[in-house]
Amino acid sequence: MKRFVKENALGLTFGLLFVVVLAGQAYAGLADYNQQQLTEGLPRISFARYVTSASFGADVAENWQSEYLQFFLFIFLTVWLVQKGSPESKNLDKVGRESDQDQKIGPYADENSPKWARASGVRLFLFANSLGLVMGAIFLLSWIAQFIAGRAAFNEEQLGNLEDPMSPGQYLMAPDFWNRTLQNWQSELLAVASMAILAIYLRQRGSSQSKPVGTAHTATGVEG
């Protein structure tokens, strides 16, 4: 057990932090929602009602979709795009999908390679792109969830303002949908760009996301 925790500390810690912070978001969001209810002369709603509300769902999904979009883009674009001196980039001479030998595919698979790395056709294609595909799928599902929940939350506000609700087609073109979407996208893109560039010149001793402290600024694809 102790060994399991030590060997999986990164995933476990972030998973635990995720649950704690999501709960914090739920309580803060409920307080905010009920503040608005009181302002409008309406009764408070329960915690259970809030965490199943469109308002909470839209707030959660809009952040999820942008995070997974960030990873999806980063995973796919780093196949072809490099950044000289960045530990987030692979070596400048390895642009592209690389050779089967480099990727340990098919006859080049070793005894420890996953089974599907030895396969061919669709199975190999799926496994060889599985990380990006899954991240992209989660992004799309989260974005759709944001659209559906965001529309319901927006329409709840519309009715509270004595205005007509919007159809899905209207909401797809609505500023609310694109404002929720783009405000999250821009922050994720900035974070990736700054990480890729700052890691050229800055170091974090012992971190897998940094070059070793003494490594040259020009060294590319070196992680600590």
Partner: peptide, 17 residues
């Protein structure tokens, strides 16, 4: 888990007109 949760959220939150 992360795929399941949005699906559950969708059922609960979406515009159940």
């Amino acid at each position: 888990l992360k795929l399941t949760v949005p699906a559950v959220l969708l059922l609960g939150l979406a515009g159940c007109g």
